[in-house]
Design a binder for these strands. Structure first.
Length: 552
RNA sequence: UGGGUCGUCGCCAAGCGGUAAGGCACGGGGUUUUGAUCCCCGCAUACCAAGGUUCGAAUCCUUGCGACCCAGCCA
């Protein structure tokens, strides 16, 4: 059996690392980091970055840290931090060290003082509006702030007092003194510290000034001796600033920032802000709603860590903006689930079938395999009796062309059991089919009938022996390929993304199926036991359907 | 129209001057007690365009065209 994980494919970052290794650039060391801001749950886009960073470290005998970029306490929380640790672990990676940007607040402050002493940073009293105005535009250079030439002594004093809490929020900022005329907006004296009296989930109220991303990230990388600092494309313009900061101060190493294109998946979104909106406005039932592209959502839907890793390897790593089709993800999911899931029978939308020529009280325990290609997964017994349940959609009075299921007067194979023939259709007063009267051929158990071919096979359960279950069928959350492109992404929401079937029946072997266990419901798809499930009320989520090539 | 980046099959993606890998999707066939799986076969004389260099170009040069990112005291 092939493993779902494919061999490492070539990509430009692997080339860069191979070259650095060949040149002994960092004494042959590879150190990466995955640096999320703890302001939301991780999603499939983060998975790409996680697999990249941890994968690169792993395949080069290097290290990968998990670092929380927690410099903006307003949006961050312990809950998010914990969910991130949980999700990274679940995907299957172990970090070398767990770090936080906030671990470096003191050092960051010292470096800022150093910058001021060098005359490379100054305290500015301009308002945000003034700063924006002075910054110029894409085509017009900026002009210096009136505070730009403040003396070093005064800057030192002001910055100390900023830290001491002598000023109101927003009264001053610390800015790097670089080049107000730079064609790169990020180099026009970027703000590196702001005053903000917000409780930080780790440092509490110790600080009332917080460092900005551009200033913090490069120094954090350097302090951790990161060799390759991998981030997404929108930070390309920030690289000169990343390098500038590290060039002004004394740090153990100067990591190389490398940018790659973030994942864009059709029929979904990966904007934290919008994902947050879906949750808070209750368009979904939470961060772990199986329709969400979050790691928690995928997990609850029944997607495996191996499938996510396989997907991330398949989509590749480039600098090209691209949209991945959902079919690629589904393929990775099916490939892993097909190999590892035990098969069981479940009737989602039951139709009663009475086998008229089967003895009233007889029950046969039929032995069936748990996996058609993997006999080592064993067999189980399923009860066959006079009254069975089959799928409504597996019977048609007037079948469409090439129909291979049950129809009046014709035969069909009951999976793992006998061939039956439908003799009569019972309807209620409204003409709705409520029961089928059938007969079975006793000589067709484990063998084909004499002289005729029965091509259809359908699944079933015994009415009295089966267990009631609720089955949740999920469809894509959006009905447009690029919801992000819509004026309002909520307009693209799929109104039928969740269908709950409360009358389903599953075979008795599922009685004690643990939460998160996964099965293939034969002919129906892959399903996972939901956390809402209990022995009295089983609840299953559909992870993905089976591939369906029946064109009709 | 300042700067940065990108353009190879429907969607991804290898390729790095020697004559277009692979995956997904799609189409056809075979096996099958899942219309699943699995197995065969097919699927870019062509690499955004036009010039140029070269015995030879997707790969080098030139000029166009198109797309994305940047003017937070967010990350």
């Amino acid at each position: 059996m092939s493993t779902p994980e494919t061999q490492p494919a070539a990509n430009f970052i692997r080339h860069i690392i191979a070259k650095d290794l060949a040149e002994n650039k960092h004494q042959g060391r590879v150190a990466t980091r995955f640096p999320p801001e703890p302001n939301g749950y991780l999603h499939i886009g983060h998975a790409k970055s996680i697999c990249l960073n941890f994968g690169l470290a792993l395949e080069n005998q290097g290290t990968c840290n998990l670092r929380f970029d927690d410099t903006n306490p307003e949006k961050e929380s312990i809950e998010y931090m914990e969910s991130i640790e949980r999700d990274v672990s679940w995907i299957g990676f172990t970090w070398h060290e767990l770090r936080h940007a906030s671990d470096y607040f003191e050092q960051l402050y010292d470096f800022a003082v150093d910058l001021i002493k060098q005359g490379k940073a100054y305290v500015d009293s301009s308002t945000p509006e003034q700063i924006r105005e002075y910054r110029g535009t894409l085509t017009k250079p900026g002009i210096p702030s009136p505070d730009r030439e403040r003396s070093i002594e005064e800057n030192l004093d002001l910055f100390t007092r900023m830290r001491n809490g002598d000023f109101a929020d927003g009264q001053y900022v610390l800015r790097a003194k670089i080049d107000m005329a730079s064609s790169n907006m990020n180099m026009r004296d970027p703000t590196i510290y702001r005053i903000r009296r917000v409780h930080h989930h780790r440092t509490g109220d110790k600080w009332c000034i917080y460092p900005m991303y551009d200033y913090t990230h490069c120094i954090s990388d350097a302090l951790e001796a990161i060799t390759h600092s991998i981030c997404t494309l929108e930070f390309e313009d920030h690289r000169p600033l990343y390098d500038w900061v590290l060039d002004q101060i004394e740090v153990p190493c100067h990591p190389q920032q490398i940018e790659f294109a973030r994942l864009q998946l059709e029929y979904t979104i990966v904007s934290k802000r919008k994902l947050n909106q879906l949750v808070t406005e209750k368009h979904v039932h939470g961060w772990d709603d199986p329709r969400m592209p979050t790691i928690a959502g995928l997990r609850r839907a029944g997607v495996t860590p191996a499938a996510i890793r396989d997907f991330c390897e398949r989509i590749g790593v480039t600098k090209k903006d691209s949209w991945i089709e959902m079919a690629v993800l589904e393929n990775s999911i099916r490939e892993d689930l097909n190999e590892h899931s035990a098969r069981v029978m479940a009737v989602l939308d039951p139709l009663r079938v009475v086998i008229e020529n089967y003895p009233d009280d007889q029950v046969e325990q039929l032995e069936v395999g748990n996996h058609p290609q993997r006999p080592e997964l064993g067999t189980r017994k399923i009860p066959f009796s006079k009254v069975l349940l089959i799928e409504q959609e597996d019977f048609a009075e007037t079948p469409p062309p090439k129909y291979k299921r049950l129809t009046t007067g014709e035969e069909v194979r009951l999976r793992g059991a006998y061939v039956i023939r439908c003799n009569e259709v019972i309807k209620d007063a409204d003409g709705k089919i409520i029961e089928l009267r059938c007969s079975y051929d006793p000589d067709t158990l484990g063998k084909n009938p004499e002289g005729r071919k029965v091509k259809g096979v359908i699944h079933w359960v015994s009415e009295t022996h089966s267990l009631p279950a609720e089955v949740r069928l999920y469809d894509r959350l959006f009905c447009r390929p690029n919801p992000d492109m819509e004026a309002n992404f909520l307009d693209a929401l799929n109104p039928n993304s969740l269908q709950i079937l409360s009358q389903s029946r599953v075979e008795a072997s599922l009685k004690d199926a643990p939460v998160e266990s996964r099965y293939q419901f034969e002919r129906m798809g892959y399903f996972c036991v939901d956390k809402d499930s209990s022995p009295d009320q089983l609840v299953f989520n559909r992870t993905v359907t089976l591939r369906d090539t029946w064109d009709s």
